[in-house]
């Protein structure tokens, strides 16, 4: 089977080196908040989380040598999550709304009884 052949041929990268790189990134994400700047924290915390997760996916899960469409499958799913977030966040994050007019309530006329 072709994939078996691919497996036998592929040279394993140095997993220990990737692991060490991940640990360095972890250290940076811990040091980030010490600058006390929220943007820096955002980048070191979440930017680095994305880098780390991508490295784990690419090298440990071997997505780098997997069929390309597996990436697409996973990214489409992530895309659905983003769609969900984009659709829900305006309501949950801004429940008071923007530029809403607060009109006085006029009670409806009482029903006419025949």
């Amino acid at each position: 089977m072709s994939s078996e052949a691919v497996h036998a041929d592929r040279a394993h990268p140095s997993y220990v080196r990737i692991y060490l790189a991940l640990l360095v990134l972890l250290a940076i994400s811990l040091l980030g908040p010490m600058f006390g700047h929220p943007i820096v924290t955002l980048v070191t915390a979440f930017g680095i989380a994305i880098v780390k997760a991508t490295m784990v996916a690419a090298y440990f899960m071997h997505l780098n040598i997997e069929e390309r469409y597996v990436w697409y499958i996973l990214f489409v799913m992530l895309g659905f999550v983003l769609v969900m977030f984009a659709g829900i966040a305006p309501d949950v994050m801004l429940p008071a709304g923007q530029n809403w007019l607060h009109l006085p309530i006029t009670p409806p006329a009482p029903p006419v009884h025949h």
Partner: peptide, 9 residues
Amino acid sequence: GDPLLWQHL
């Protein structure tokens, strides 16, 4: 919490 969140989910 937010009841609207459930409606969306």
